[in-house]
Design a protein around this nucleic acid. Structure first.
Lengths: 191, 191
DNA sequence: CAGATTATGTAGATCGGTCTAGAGAGGAAC
DNA sequence: GTTCCTCTCTAGACCGATCTACATAATCTG
């Protein structure tokens, strides 16, 4: 039956997503994923014949979509892309603190770990970031920013967000995120 | 013979520094460190009785000082803190590409891996970032920036650098670094 | 019954860490 | 000057735990 199998599969992805965000690719063992998901070993290799890399790939993709969802939700009330970015930073900071600094950017840790060593996972991380940057550039263009500059500006804003999350987790403090958030206003528009 | 011991110790730190920057804390095995350093297992636990955590701690500290050195060197010719940051970004990009994207920020990967799980290493990562931020704030103040804003501005610039390195490694491209470098002018002063 | 999924068990490698033995360079004693 | 002692450091075997991956059997569903 498809239902039960899909549930197990979803639980495995969810567990992998959480653990990988907290401890990275190498820091997350399949035993721990299985324990958190409450699934037996056999199920893992049935649903993910590609092994750990396939599981982590799908977990990263799911995490990317989760952030997309947060953005979409925030976009409904944000009056401008500038306010959207500030709201996103606040939401990411809340999420990070609530998790005891076990959450930050769900892609960054793996991206750094595998950049030079895992040709299967590296492009996946790159694609997620590219998607975020594209969406950000679209929002900036829709907001009146110069079309030619939107791409560059989107990369800068994305870098600021990622960097702020790194500093915040390293120092176990949301201060860097708040500091960066205030400065982003100066970068995005003149009001 | 104190000399020979110090050499072995230094080789172990150097090997750990390189491997940890490339693959992170969990991704770096002591066997590999020993192989690269050409040292036997006994030497490791003689010089680092605290085990892996002590070795990585000292490797991170050494990496932090290496970046300090790069900054000091660049500062001799940079006419302003803004130009210094741009030169630093270019140097980091060169270093990253030359290493086949095995180098980026030597602290970031570990900082993300251990933020919520290793109480011995987390404060060390935090301290290194705090030191960089302090130096940056001093440079900004010396450059005429408002003293009250210097701290916040330093955090933002540091976040921008860290984020640019994450995006660059994730996409195996120096483009994000170049894009953010061009945008730094808008963040740092008005010329 | 057939096919999909779960449930274990286990293989083989590698992990971090510990232990003991020995190599080799000063310094002290005579 | 030679012997011997001591202390630092190297060398490598070894331990239990854990890792990813696979194999096989039991179970469930349509």
């Amino acid at each position: 039956m498809a239902v039960k199998g899909d549930e197990t599969r979803a639980r495995l992805i969810e567990a992998a997503r959480t653990l990988v965000e907290a401890k990275g690719y190498h820091g997350t063992g399949l035993n721990e994923v299985l324990a958190v998901a409450g699934a037996p070993r056999g199920s893992l290799y049935h649903h993910f014949p590609g092994g750990k890399d396939q599981l982590v790939s799908e977990a990263l993709a799911a995490a990317g979509r989760e952030v997309d969802g947060i953005v979409v939700e925030l976009a409904e009330t944000a009056p401008s892309s500038r306010e959207l970015v500030k709201a996103l930073l606040a939401a990411l900071a809340d999420r990070m603190v609530a998790a005891g600094y076990a959450k930050g950017c769900p892609v960054a840790t793996v991206a750094l770990e595998v950049a030079a060593t895992n040709d299967a996972l590296q492009p996946i991380c790159g694609d997620i970031y590219a998607g975020w940057q594209r969406a950000l550039a679209d929002a900036l263009r829709a907001d009146g920013h110069d079309a030619a500059e939107a791409d560059e500006l989107a990369a800068t804003v994305l870098a600021l967000i990622e960097g702020a999350l790194v500093l915040a987790r390293a120092g176990r403090s949301r201060t860097p995120i708040e500091q960066t958030s205030r400065r982003i206003a100066k970068l995005l528009g003149t009001d």
